[in-house]
Simulated assay, not measured.
Amino acid sequence: MAAPAKRAVVFAYHNVGVRCLKVLLAGGVDVVLVVTHQDSAGENIWFESVMSLCALEGIACITPQDASSPELLAQVQAAQPDLMFSFYYRNMLPQALLAVAPAFNMHGSLLPQFRGRAPVNWAVLHGALETGASLHEMTVKPDAGAIVAQTAVPILPDDTAYEVFGKVTVAAEQTLWRVLPALLNGNAPRTPNDVQQGRYFSGRKPEDGRIDWSQPASEVYNLHRAVAPPYPGAFTDVGGQRYVIERARLSRNDDGKQSSKLPPGLAVVDNCIVGVCGDGRMLAISSLLFDAVPVTPAQLQARLANTDAANT
């Protein structure tokens, strides 16, 4: 007689939440309760819905505002899970919840690197050449539990955080799929997670996308890649008007001679929009937005001229 399916409570959100929840279902796990978030009206929701997947699969789904509430603890305890999982759930789980059953979290980096919030964005911002997904035991200290499995993905020189997040989502699915049988059998491997070898990063705010044109072009470009749409985008203010870079690349043919004659910031060169950086190199900006509408080189040139005139 086959053993009964393992019961699981899953805390999940975002694309990683959807894909990993599907892996559990495909692996025969009895998901008895899903805890997720209500979408925020002030957020650009470009990702898949855990709530919609639960409705489709007939899974009980709740959206508590407080992960530390006694009501949530009672609901999780009543579900009597054998295992618990957190897949991009945005709230920290208190010790009382973690004590209900063995709990595992999927983190979007190669732990112990880039622990904490927005790991993909931070990896791109810091010019990392690779990242990945790590399944690890949950502890009260974030992203500090023993590592169960990892999958690496490359970060190519022109990848945006959005593109890298797509790779990390697939890596998370592969990581969970590969180790799930061992998890269900109780013999999954454990590797120490030496947090001294990595850093913890806090969440990012839209204001963190402000461009400092005095920085080298490689750093400005990494900022653009890290926050390019559908994230809020790297921005600069000129004459009281805010411009957001939608698409850009490091200029491949800039020898520094032409840009060295220009002050750092936005400019129009040969009918093309560029961003001149502190080291004399330029970003070739193929799409610049003002109030979410693309700006042409002619429009930007006229506005820059008006700003210069107003300042003289």
Rank of each mutant, 00 (worst) to 15 (best):
V76N: 03
G203K: 12
L289W: 00
L98H: 08
V10Q: 05
S69N: 02
Q38S: 13
T160W: 03
G145R: 13
P94E: 04
I245H: 01
C54M: 04
P119I: 06
E43D: 09
G278T: 02
G233D: 01
L93M: 11
Q301M: 07
C272I: 05
R210Q: 15
Q150F: 07
A284D: 13
V124W: 12
V32G: 05
P142H: 03
K257R: 15
L135W: 06
P4H: 06
V276T: 00
N253V: 11
Q95W: 09
G145A: 08
R242V: 14
N253D: 13
A144G: 11
N306E: 15
T63A: 15
K257F: 15
G58E: 08
W122F: 09
A67W: 06
E163W: 01
S251I: 00
P64H: 07
G203H: 09
G27L: 09
R115I: 06
A172E: 10
R210S: 08
M51N: 03
C20H: 06
Q75T: 09
A171H: 07
S259E: 11
P264E: 14
R117Q: 07
Q150P: 02
A228V: 03
N193I: 06
G275D: 04
R90L: 15
G42P: 00
S287V: 07
G256A: 04
T296Q: 03
V293Q: 11
L283T: 08
G280E: 07
L300S: 04
Q299E: 15
G17V: 11
S218W: 10
A149Y: 09
L288K: 05
Q301R: 12
P157I: 09
S52G: 01
T236W: 09
N121M: 15
L250V: 09
D39S: 12
G108M: 13
H37A: 09
G240V: 12
V195Q: 13
V276G: 06
P142Y: 07
F165G: 01
R225I: 02
G239A: 10
A149H: 14
S40W: 10
Q196L: 14
L289H: 00
L98D: 01
P154H: 04
Q77E: 15
T36W: 11
L176A: 08
L262N: 01
P112Y: 12
S109D: 05
L110M: 15
